[in-house]
Write a protein that binds this DNA or RNA. Sequence first.
DNA 1: CACTGTGAATTCCTTCACAGCG
DNA 2: CGCTGTGAAGGAATTCACAGTG
Lengths: 204, 204
Amino acid sequence: MKYRKIPEETIRRMPRYLRAFSTLQSENQGYISSQLLAERLHLNPPQIRKDLSYFGAFGTRGIGYPVQSTAEQIRSILKLNITQRAALVGAGRLGTAIASYHGFSLFGFDIAAVFDNDRQKIGRRIGGRTIEDVSRIGSVGSRGIQLAILAVPAEAAQTCADQLIKAGIKGILSLSPCYLETPKRIKVISIDLAMELGTLPYYL
Amino acid sequence: MKYRKIPEETIRRMPRYLRAFSTLQSENQGYISSQLLAERLHLNPPQIRKDLSYFGAFGTRGIGYPVQSTAEQIRSILKLNITQRAALVGAGRLGTAIASYHGFSLFGFDIAAVFDNDRQKIGRRIGGRTIEDVSRIGSVGSRGIQLAILAVPAEAAQTCADQLIKAGIKGILSLSPCYLETPKRIKVISIDLAMELGTLPYYL
DNA sequence: CACTGTGAATTCCTTCACAGCG
DNA sequence: CGCTGTGAAGGAATTCACAGTG
């Protein structure tokens, strides 16, 4: 396909494809058609074919997509073929839940550091990591950490984000209910549970 | 404006507007222009004007939107002018974090019940509520609970969802990394932190 | 005059329909 | 033949440009 800008929405669906292909890998499936994959993911077959085709022709006509190699392809497109180290900032209840959540490893993430500003918490261990003083955030650059998960109170979020960016962080997943002011080169994904829940009553 | 279908995306932005207007209320601002609001929310002014105009003409030409009454309007559009009771299913680390998160109250949510299947946890209190046995989920209907937050392991999510729906739940916010099979009348919002994080390395 | 409200234009994304290939 | 890959069509959301109004 001649080059066309890859839609943002396609990128957002890629991890879904990867999860599906990972599952198929563990089921030892050899091939999967867009039809069958669509049923699993509740998408339309052409959507899947178009999405994947943005990155090249992975499929075999008449048969489908080879599970093994397509999984690898998607992993390398998303740069998840190498272990991605992430720092977790905030070791409160939410941070603790995240630190002990094993779902990240499927995508090759490694929560390589946990920071907090509470003297009580520093030095304690959660999810197998020792909580460090937030003042040591500057060390992430030298530790090969480019991503951060922010699970701090809204008031602290902007300050933490500033420190993280100064320390060389390139992408942030924020769970604080506020907008972060960041340079354009930094990719920020923001999730606010209350806001997501806020749309539900409308549909009642 | 003659009737036009309200875009899904507009609905998704409404809680953002509500949060902004709530803040403006507490700052005792009388009016706000789409221009200024757009700067706060990092949106374009016409976007905001169009979104709000789907629900009627709330603004005053030459001045802007009256903070107090627009906030009330949005609250009633989203059905957040009345207290919305929600059940939390799963009192693990994530559930505990959610139970003690105060951000929901800004939108008028009340976590009115917490369920878990772990005998160890039943009877204990988190976030001011007593954890109930998941077998009592059927009681939500009679307790005026129409919404649920699902924070259980992926394996348990579908079963819980089925029980919730049988009990009369109309909307679900799921934090489990899996697709829920539900009747079309049920609104489901699904958030998978690992998948959200999964897009970040792509942009590095 | 400064703002909102809104058709029209544009951009973006999805779906279709079928050509192309194993 | 059965599937993928893709240009073209269709649909949805955003942005523009300006008419309308307190």
